[in-house]
Design a protein around this nucleic acid. Structure first.
Lengths: 171, 171
DNA sequence: CCTCCTGATGACACTCAGTGACATGCCTGC
DNA sequence: GCAGGCATGTCACTGAGTGTCATCAGGAGG
C-alpha cells in the first residue's frame, strides 16, 4: 500500500511490489489473485461479521432492523481502523479499476446479506431490496465517516444515514 | 457479442474479435477502451434518459417519485430490446470481470441521478440514498424482467420493485 | 487536376498482468 | 536420517493494452 500511495496504483508494477516485499512476482500471485486484491484482504471478514449480526438479530426484528444490526457490527469492525481505511479509500477513489473491485465486493456483501435475510424468513424481492438499501447506507455512511473533518463515530454516522434512508423512502 | 456468447468472454481474444470484424487489434482499441466496453456501449445513453426524466418530473414530486419517473424512462428505453438485453445479461452474469464493469456503470448511473436530485433541490445525503435505492430497484427489477418466464412489461416490474422497496423501508 | 490536410487504419514493437510447468529448498512427522 | 509435502524461485508463454510511425482515402482549396 505504501507503493500504491506513493506512485499511484497504475504506476506500481507487481514486480515493484514483489521486490519491496523481497519476493518474486510469481509468489505474489500465489498470495493474491491479482494486483487489486491486495487492498481487499479484509472484505471477506467484514462480510462475515455483517451477516452474523443480521442472523443474530432478534427474531421479531423487521428486515431493515436486522440490517441495522449488521451495520452496527461493521461499525464495530472498523473500530481503530479509521486512519487505515481513509488512506486506503484515497487510493481506491482515484483508480477506476479499484472502484470496480470495491463495487463487486459491495455486491458480494449485498448478496450475502440477502441470503441472511432470506434465512430469517424475509421473502423476495424484499430481502434483496433491504440488503441493497442497507449496503447503500453502508457505502454512503462509510464515505462520510472517513471524510476529512468528520469526528463522529461510525455507528452514529451509519445510524444517521439509515434514518435518512427511511425518511426519503417514506410515503 | 456472437463470439462472447459462443466461446465465453475470457476465451475470446481481442485478436479474434478484430479478425471477425475485419479489423486489427489496434483498431479495436481505437473504438473501445478495452475488451469489456464492447458490451456497455449503450450505458451512457441509458443514463442520460434516466437523468432527463428525473429532471423533468413535476417540481412538487418527492425525491423517490422523481426517481420513479426515471425508472419509467429506462423501461421505455428498453422497449424492444428485451431479447438483446437478456442475451447480454447471460454473458455478463457468468464473468466476474464484466460484473465489475456493470457495477461501475450502475454506480455512474447512481452518481448521475444523485446530481439530478440535487439539482431538484434534494439535500445530501438524501439525494444519494434515494438515487442508490432507485438504482437498486432498477437492478433487481431488470434482473426479474429479463429472467426466463417473465412476460410482464418492464415498467410494471419496476413499479412493483419500487413498491416493494417502499414497503420494506417503511417504519 | 493537383496539392495539402485530416482522420481512420495498419504495422510493429513494447510493457505488464497473469498462468503453467518444473526445479529447489525447507520443515515436519515417522 | 529420510520421505513427503509446501512454499518459493525460475523460466517461458499468452494476451491485454499502448506508443509510434507509415499508409491511404477523401474533402477543401488553388
Amino acid at each position: 500500500m505504501a507503493l500504491y500511495a506513493e506512485h499511484g496504483f497504475e504506476a506500481t508494477t507487481v514486480a515493484d511490489i514483489a521486490e519491496r516485499a523481497g519476493l518474486t512476482k510469481r509468489t505474489f500471485f500465489r498470495h493474491f489473485a491479482d494486483k487489486r486484491e491486495v487492498l481487499f484482504d479484509g472484505s471477506k471478514d467484514l462480510e462475515e461479521h455483517f451477516v452474523a449480526a443480521v442472523l443474530a438479530a432478534p427474531e421479531a426484528a423487521a428486515p431493515l432492523d436486522a440490517v441495522a444490526a449488521g451495520l452496527d457490527a461493521t461499525a464495530e469492525w472498523f473500530t481503530g481502523r479509521r486512519e487505515y481505511a481513509a488512506r486506503r479509500q484515497r487510493i481506491v477513489a482515484e483508480t477506476p479499476e479499484l472502484q470496480e473491485r470495491e463495487l463487486i465486493k459491495m455486491a458480494s456483501l449485498a448478496g450475502a446479506v440477502t441470503g441472511a435475510l432470506r434465512t430469517r424468513g424475509v421473502a423476495d424481492p424484499a430481502a434483496g431490496l433491504a440488503a441493497e438499501a442497507g449496503v447503500a447506507v453502508f457505502r454512503i455512511g462509510f464515505g462520510r465517516w472517513v471524510a476529512d473533518g468528520n469526528t463522529a463515530p461510525m455507528d452514529h454516522v451509519l445510524r444517521d444515514a439509515l434514518a435518512e434512508l427511511r425518511a426519503v423512502t417514506a410515503g
